[in-house]
Amino acid sequence: MPLANEIRDLRQRTMDDLARAHDHFSDSMYAWEIVQTTISRGFKFVRKNPATGTTIGERDLIGHSQNFGIQLLAESTFQNFISIFENFLFDFLRLWLKTYPQSLTKKSVNFQAILDAADRNEIILAVVNKELNEVMYERPASWFAYLEERARLGCPDIQAIERIAEAKASRDVLVHNRGVVGHAYIVKSGSQSRHVPGERIDIPEPYHREVWDLLRKVVADVCDSATLKLLAS
């Protein structure tokens, strides 16, 4: 399949994934609102979780709604947004490098990998994957510098890159530091920092939405710029 078509499919798949993630957030918020309203109108119950043995009633569920309904749901879907975007960016780079592997000519290949490969494409893919695994461990600014170095798309702009870096840093705080901001967040988030060390990180709904909008815009900009470039060449 031509690269332009593969990029179009990747763009659509990523947009669909982001939409599904946000729909899950929105629908779940609504479901929790219905639960709260139903209970406030007198609905009573007792339920036991057969796995944990935990028994809860309607008042407990009201308490859970504030945990799961607002905070945990926002945090988990926010993490999902970032994961979807990371997958997009590295899938894009993988497609690009597979099509233009000349930029990797100085990379060495283990002879065993050549013996194991079914064909030339499999060797190229192995080199590309090894290269991207190394890039993946860099910071977002390096990801985008790498993208620009390889594809010369002229996007995203520096402000978008800084905002994505902050969002990724917020995600890292949630995943690796139980939500408590540390020095690493301050360094990673730079001028876009929203907190000081020691604070519990906030993922308020407007921020959650802004990051979602930003990621969609960057996906669209990168794919559209690449497609235009491919069509012009």
Binding site: I62, G63, N67, I70, Q71, R200
Partner: peptide, 9 residues
């Protein structure tokens, strides 16, 4: 409303 470790709303 709030509980331990969560922000109020």
């Amino acid at each position: 409303r709030f509980s331990e470790g969560t922000a109020g709303f």
